[in-house]
C-alpha cells in the first residue's frame, strides 16, 4: 500500500492539470490561498482585539465567548453554513461553497489568536508594565513596545494553532464540492482509489508540517531571545498551561 501511495504521489501526471482532473499543484495553491486569506482576516480581527482587551482589561467576556465557539463541531457548522449560503449562488463558480468555508475558517481561527494574544498581554509581569508606565511611556507605547513583544511567544503559539486548524478544516471543506488538497482524500474515497486517498492525506500532513515549520522559523527570528527561555533556567508552567488550554484545543 505504501508503495502504491508513493507511486501515486510520484506520478508527474497527477501534479499537472488535465482536461478532466485538477492536478496536485493547482489544488495545493488553492488550499494555501484560502487558508492564507482566512488566517489574514482572522489575524486582522483578533490580534488588535486581543491586544486591546488585554491592555485595558475590558471586554473579557469576548474571550470567554470566543472560547465557547470551540465546542462547536467544525463539520456541522461548515455544512450548515453551506446549505444556507450555497443556494444563493448559481452557475459554475464555487463561490457558494467558498464563502461559507471562508467564514467557518475565519470564525475558527479567531478564538486561538484572540485568547492567546489576550493571555500574552495579561501574562506580562505587572512589574514590567509598572516600570514601563513609570518611566513615561504612553499607553500606546506600553502596548506596542512592551506588551506586544512580550506576548509574541503566546501570540505565535495561538497563530500556529489557528494555522493548523485552518489547514485541517479547509481539507474537510473538500467534502463539500470545493477544491483543495482534501479533494484527493474525498475523491479517492468515492472512487475506492485508496492510493489517491492516502496520498492526499500525506500531502495535507506535509502542508501542515511545512506551514508549522515556517511559522516556527519566523517565530524564532522575531521573538526576542530574552523571552524564549533558552537562557532562563526555570520554566514557567503557568504560561505553558495557558497555551495548552487555550491554544491547543484548536489545533485539530
Amino acid at each position: 500500500m505504501i508503495g502504491e501511495v508513493f507511486t501515486w504521489l510520484n506520478d508527474p501526471g497527477h501534479w499537472k492539470d488535465t482536461r478532466f482532473d485538477t492536478g496536485i499543484a493547482t489544488q495545493l495553491t488553492a488550499h494555501v490561498r484560502f487558508c492564507a486569506f482566512a488566517l489574514l482576516v482572522a489575524l486582522i480581527i483578533a490580534l488588535p482585539l486581543g491586544l486591546v482587551i488585554g491592555h485595558t482589561g475590558r471586554g473579557r467576556w469576548l474571550i470567554a465567548a470566543a472560547n465557547t465557539l470551540r465546542a462547536l463541531p467544525t463539520v456541522g457548522v461548515l455544512v450548515l453554513l453551506t446549505v444556507v449560503i450555497a443556494p444563493h449562488f448559481y452557475g459554475r463558480t464555487d463561490t457558494g461553497y467558498l464563502i461559507p468555508t471562508e467564514i467557518v475558517l475565519i470564525v475558527l481561527a479567531i478564538p486561538s489568536i484572540l485568547s492567546n494574544t489576550f493571555a500574552g498581554v495579561e501574562n506580562v509581569d505587572p512589574a514590567v508594565r509598572d516600570a514601563a508606565e513609570g518611566m513615561g511611556m504612553t499607553g500606546k507605547q506600553v502596548l506596542l513596545k512592551v506588551e506586544l513583544p512580550c506576548s509574541l511567544p503566546l501570540i505565535f503559539s495561538g497563530f500556529r494553532s489557528a494555522t493548523l486548524q485552518v489547514i485541517a478544516t479547509a481539507t474537510i471543506a473538500s467534502y463539500l464540492p470545493l477544491g483543495g488538497l482534501g479533494r484527493f482524500i474525498y475523491d479517492g474515497l468515492a472512487q475506492q482509489d485508496f492510493p489517491q486517498m492516502i496520498g492526499g492525506g500525506v500531502l495535507v500532513a506535509g502542508l501542515a508540517l511545512v506551514a508549522d515549520l515556517l511559522l516556527y522559523l519566523v517565530q524564532r527570528y522575531t521573538v526576542s531571545r530574552g523571552l524564549t527561555g533558552r537562557f532562563s533556567k526555570k520554566r514557567i508552567p503557568d504560561a505553558r498551561l495557558a497555551s495548552v488550554t487555550q491554544a491547543e484545543v484548536a489545533a485539530v
Binding site: V5, I185, L189, G201, V204, A205, A208, L209, A251
Partner: peptide
C-alpha cells in the same frame, strides 16, 4: 509533530501505518 497533522489526514494515514485495511 503528531498534533500538527490534521485529523482527516491522520485518519487516512493510520491504515497503511498500522497495517489495517482502508476504512
Amino acid at each position: 509533530l503528531i498534533y500538527t497533522i490534521p485529523s482527516i489526514a491522520l485518519f487516512v494515514l493510520i491504515p497503511p501505518l498500522f497495517g489495517l485495511k482502508s476504512l
